[in-house]
């Protein structure tokens, strides 16, 4: 195995994220809608932070801002102290709909981000892609087309694709929301196994409080329209965690309690 493969496969140092007074509105049918307002949030290097809130609280908007796909109307989004000015492969993203490319095979999808990296030859890209497909348990499906996979397998490919360019932050936008409970629970296990072996900063958006308690180091709770941070819950439980364990459920209950506090009364 060549040196460049080893270098590619050793996890990149995680990024620190800081959001300072972030405000973002978009134009809806009935005029401008304030999606998020005055968001302050810090995510330290290698931390797994879950954003939880009712639908329409702007948590996906926050991810787009961190990804650099959109720009804030006010405030600042900082990655290692530097303002985010656009998307980049140090901050890859996973979406609720898998967003895999149907014209590429499973392996072709995982290769996509690698093809944009300079200095990687074909063989290296192949080995790196192979590594990540094995990591998500899909090494036997390299040549399959996306439509031939189940929903859970598609999200596994999406995870491999997002990890392959060796990002320093992984942004996950309700990646398991459309899956059945069984596929979801297997993915919780795999995700914990994968992140135990690499320290990558993760910002994970979900409306599933149990999922957040199972995966996160910290859960940030948001209120609805405009999205504001109303509280947070630290989850200091050992990993791997089982989503059905009573202490995980206990933390989830605390998040639910925070969610039910009216927005005005929280801060």
């Amino acid at each position: 195995m060549s040196g460049s493969v080893d270098r590619e496969l050793s996890p990149a140092p995680p990024l620190k994220l800081s959001l300072r007074g972030v405000r973002k509105s978009y134009v809806g049918r009935a005029g401008p809608v304030l999606a998020v307002d005055g968001i302050d949030l810090d995510v330290s290097e290698g931390e797994f932070v879950c954003l939880v809130g009712p639908s329409g609280c702007g948590k996906s908007t926050l991810l787009s801002l961190v990804a650099g796909l959109e720009r804030p109307d006010g405030g600042a989004v900082l990655a290692d102290g530097k303002p985010v000015v656009g998307p980049g492969r140090e901050r890859t993203m996973m979406f609720q709909e898998h967003a895999l490319f149907p014209w590429r095979t499973v392996e072709g999808n995982v290769r996509f981000g690698l093809e944009l990296k300079e200095g990687l030859d074909r063989a290296t890209r192949g080995e790196v892609a192979e590594h990540y497909l094995r990591l998500v348990g899909l090494e036997g499906f390299r040549r399959a087309w996306v439509h031939e996979l189940s929903g859970g397998m598609r999200q596994r490919v999406a995870l491999a694709r997002a990890l392959a360019p060796n990002p320093r932050v992984l942004l996950m936008d309700e990646p398991f929301a459309a899956l059945d409970a069984m596929s979801r629970e297997r993915l919780y296990e795999d995700l914990q196994r994968i992140f135990a072996a690499r320290r990558t900063t993760v910002l994970f958006v979900t409306h599933n409080v149990r999922e957040a308690a199972c995966l996160g180091d910290r859960i940030v709770v948001m209120s609805a329209r405009p999205g504001r941070v109303v509280g947070e819950v630290r989850v200091a439980l050992p990993r791997p965690r089982d989503i059905n364990r009573s202490d995980v459920v206990e933390h989830a209950r605390e998040v639910t309690r925070l969610l039910s506090v009216p927005a005005g009364a929280a801060s």
Binding site: R91, F101, R161
Partner: peptide, 21 residues
């Protein structure tokens, strides 16, 4: 959007995402 988060931009997004899609 997915392509851009992986570092694709401009002409590359056109030739390797928009056109095949």
């Amino acid at each position: 959007r997915a392509a851009r988060t992986m570092g694709s931009k401009g002409l590359h997004t056109w030739t390797s995402v928009i056109v095949p899609a």
